[in-house]
């Protein structure tokens, strides 16, 4: 599963999720992408499940790009532990997703296959998503110079 090799700080605050994605909101590498339509923490396990779902559908053809990386440590106290004693150890890693963020991209496969793969991937994620085509914006923007 994805997680940072080393971090500057071991634990992090929860933070707030306000507004929309300000980066990574357009398809950059593949032809089709899965766009988040709401905000959420997405765990490394969910990302991995989505990635595996896409790869299985594509039968190892085409290419898959995971556009998000879980770099936020989430701590969790062990079960049946009394409160106190400070912040617990890191349990898992998440990525903070805001609406509009592209999560996964697929390229080199026909549209029908790509859409089905992304649909299966969305089933593994805790947020509503929509599939987007690179050309939806590119058709209007062309090869922006």
């Amino acid at each position: 599963m994805l997680q940072p090799k080393r971090t500057k700080f071991r634990k992090s605050f929860r933070g707030r999720r306000r507004g929309n994605a300000t980066g990574g909101e357009s398809v950059q590498f593949g032809e089709f992408g899965l766009k988040a339509m709401s905000d959420h923490w997405v765990t490394a396990r969910q990302i991995e499940a989505a990635r595996v779902a896409v790869n299985r559908q594509l039968e190892r053809g085409g290419r898959v790009w995971v556009r998000v990386f879980p770099d936020k440590p989430i701590s969790k106290k062990p079960a049946e532990t009394r409160m106190g004693g400070g912040k617990a150890a890191t349990d898992h890693w998440v990525v903070v997703i805001k609406p509009g963020r592209i999560l996964i991209e697929v390229g080199g496969v026909p549209e029908r296959e790509a859409m089905e793969a992304l649909r299966l991937a969305s089933m593994k994620l805790p947020i509503p998503t929509k599939t987007v085509h690179r050309d939806q914006a590119a058709a209007i923007m062309g090869g922006a110079g």
Binding site: N20, A21, T22, E25, S26, M37, P99, G100, R101, A137, I140, M141, G142, A144, G145
Partner: peptide
């Protein structure tokens, strides 16, 4: 056309 900005959602 140099840059086009779209609403992300």
């Amino acid at each position: 056309v140099r840059e086009v900005q779209w609403h992300p959602v």
